[in-house]
C-alpha cells in the first residue's frame, strides 16, 4: 500500500504541491485527475524519488519509502522517452536489468511482452523506426517488464490509439488483480470514471476530492429534474426548495433532503400530470468542474 502523507513541494516561492495526502491500497486502481499545472506530475515524481519533497513523506507498506523499495516500482514519466537509437528488445531488457532482473529473464520477459503487444517482429528494430503508437506500447513494456510491486503512470493513455488503450486497460487490470497498487494520472475523465476504484482530484496543488467514483458523484448537492404536463413555473412559489432552472415544462431543483422528493411529487400531481421526476447524478466530469472551479 502506498501512502502520501502531507506531501509538499515548493519551487522558490511557488507551492506546486500543497499538503497532499491520499492512499493507493493494494490492488486498487487510483485515478489522479487535475488540470495542467495542478501538481500531478510533481506529486508522481516525488513518489518515484525523482524529485525531493519539501515536506511530508511517501510511505510504502507503513514505512517511509526507500530507494530499494522504489527499485521495485514501475514508472512511466509524463514526457515519454527511451533510447531512440537502441533496438527495442535490448533497451527494455536493459531497463529490467537495472531493476535487478537477470539478463536471461529480462530478454525472455521482454520478448513475451513485445509479443503480447504485437511487436514481436520489431524487437530488433531501433525504437525511432517504430510508429508513435508502437513507441507508446514499448514504453508500457518498459514500465512493467520488471514486474513492479507498484505502478506509477503519468498520463499512460495520452497518445494511445483505441486498440492500445484496451491493451493498457487489460494490463492494468492484471496488475490490480494480483494486488499491485496502481496510480495513474489522466485528462480523460470518462476513462478514469470507467476504470478507477478511487479518484483523487487535484487543483492548484491541493486535493479537492478523494473517493470512490460513485461516492464522489453523490457527494454533491441533491438535484432533481421534474417534467410536467404543462408549465412548471409554479415551482418558484414553493419556499422549501431551491430552483436551479425552469424552462417550459421542465424544472431543475435542489432539495434539502431525499424525503422532499415525495413532497415535490405530491405538489406536482396536485397541479396536473407528471412525466418525469428523476435524480440528477453528475458525471465525474461535472464533479471535476465543480470542485476545481
Amino acid at each position: 500500500m502506498l501512502r502520501l502523507d502531507r506531501l509538499t513541494r515548493r519551487f522558490g516561492g511557488h507551492v506546486a504541491v500543497d499538503d497532499v495526502s491520499f492512499e493507493v491500497g493494494d490492488g486498487q486502481l487510483v485515478g489522479f485527475v487535475g488540470g495542467n499545472g495542478a501538481g500531478k506530475t510533481t506529486t508522481m515524481r516525488m513518489v518515484m524519488g525523482v524529485l525531493q519533497a519539501s515536506a511530508g513523506e511517501v510511505r510504502w507498506n507503513d514505512a517511509p519509502v526507500t530507494a530499494i523499495d522504489r527499485r521495485e516500482f514501475g514508472y512511466m514519466p509524463e514526457e515519454r522517452g527511451l533510447y531512440p537509437k537502441q533496438p527495442v528488445l535490448e533497451q527494455v531488457a536493459y531497463l529490467a536489468q537495472l531493476h535487478g532482473v537477470s539478463a536471461h529473464d529480462a530478454r525472455e520477459r521482454g520478448t513475451a511482452l513485445l509479443d503480447r503487444f504485437g511487436l514481436a517482429d520489431r524487437a530488433k528494430d531501433k525504437l525511432e523506426a517504430l510508429s508513435l503508437g508502437n513507441q507508446q506500447r514499448v514504453q508500457i513494456v518498459a514500465a512493467v517488464i520488471a514486474r513492479p510491486k507498484m505502478l506509477v503512470l503519468d498520463e499512460p493513455f495520452s497518445g494511445l490509439d483505441p486498440g492500445a488503450v484496451d491493451d493498457m486497460v487489460a494490463l492494468l487490470r492484471e496488475f490490480t488483480s494480483t494486488g499491485t497498487p496502481v496510480l495513474f494520472s489522466s485528462h480523460q475523465l470518462d476513462l478514469v470514471e470507467r476504470l478507477c476504484d478511487r479518484i483523487v482530484i487535484l487543483s492548484r496543488g491541493r486535493v479537492v476530492a478523494d473517493g470512490v467514483a460513485d461516492e464522489l458523484r453523490r457527494s454533491g448537492p441533491l438535484r432533481h429534474r421534474l417534467v410536467t404536463g404543462n408549465d412548471a413555473g409554479w415551482v418558484r412559489d414553493l419556499g422549501w426548495l431551491d430552483v436551479i432552472d425552469v424552462g417550459g415544462d421542465t424544472a431543475v431543483v435542489q432539495l434539502a433532503a431525499a424525503e422532499d422528493t415525495d413532497r415535490l411529487l405530491t405538489e406536482a400531481l396536485r397541479r396536473g400530470s407528471v412525466r418525469e421526476l428523476a435524480e440528477i447524478v453528475p458525471s465525474v466530469a461535472d464533479i471535476y468542474r465543480e470542485v476545481t472551479a
Binding site: M48, G49, V50, Y75, P77, G81, Y83, L98
Partner: peptide, 14 residues
C-alpha cells in the same frame, strides 16, 4: 538520457 526523460526511469531504479 535527460532529453528523452529516460533518466527519470533510470533514476527511480538505480
Amino acid at each position: 538520457e535527460k532529453q528523452n526523460r529516460i533518466v527519470e526511469i533510470i533514476a527511480s531504479a538505480i
